[in-house]
Amino acid sequence: MSGTRPKTFLSGAGLVWKWQRLVWWIFAVTLIFGFLSTQGMVDRAADTLNHSLASKRLVDGWDVSAVVELMQLQNNPIEFQGPAVIHFSIVFAVFMLFLTGGILTTYLRDEKPRTSPFFEACGQYFWRFLRLLIYFAIVLLPIAGICAGVGALYDKIEADSISPFPAVYFFVAAAVVILLLLAIVRMWFDMAEVIAVADDERRMHKALRRAARVLWHNFFSLLWLYVSIAIVGLVLFLVGLGLWMTFLSPQSNILAFLLSQLMILAWIGTRLWQRASEVLWYREYAQTSVREPVWTPSPTLVTQSVATDPES
């Protein structure tokens, strides 16, 4: 039914910009969690680094051997706090799952998110989205199987060819396909969430079925919407990384911090942009689509005289 809607792309961004406080909230929580998860390293490394002239090796450039050397010290003061980071990442993921209902409600209603209604919406949809998450994990299983198959095939191609390139080309092609598959699955579940909020659908399997139907009939326009926003996000990320690694002077700590956080902010923004665009798309879709009538009109014979206007 609905064709490509270029306006949705821009108006989605407009919606994110309009209710940008959502982006800032999420960013603030990310930052706080990030600080908390790295605090252990900071506490331990401070004793080793802050009063040592050897730490200059990390200040005036980035001497990789200094990092390796620190990791080889008995107390490994800069050890990446894996458990802490994973713990906070999981908490953040749950937090985002919780927020999703409020975010979608805000975008659907296009009104200023006030605390009580926002969190009411968060709570209202949380359990539904948790059920969706379980479905999502089930759907990811075949994709994991595809990944394993691709891995095995990659190994075989690599082993069979004297040139490294056939395996590389295969890997790139397979990666594109898998990423597209993941994008499609994410788009499908995002749509199910939108339907759950927009139509107050309580049965998630039904929301998924409806989302699949919508997706099936509007596949390319929706996919392009998602992929184009993802490309914007990726480009922003790569530009940021390039700036950080190439142009920033080794002593630019503050600039590096600002740039890295800008990259995270942009990433959050583009993800919400996808959600907002999909909400707008669905709103328009719901308004313009012709619903099947629930009753069948019976033919009625009407006799009437029609006046003919010669001017018309």
Binding site: V42, A45, L49, N50, L58, F80, Q81, N253
Partner: peptide
């Protein structure tokens, strides 16, 4: 300074 630089990356 070095500590904050490391933290930036880990963060």
């Amino acid at each position: 300074f070095a500590l904050y630089k490391l933290r930036n990356m880990w963060l």
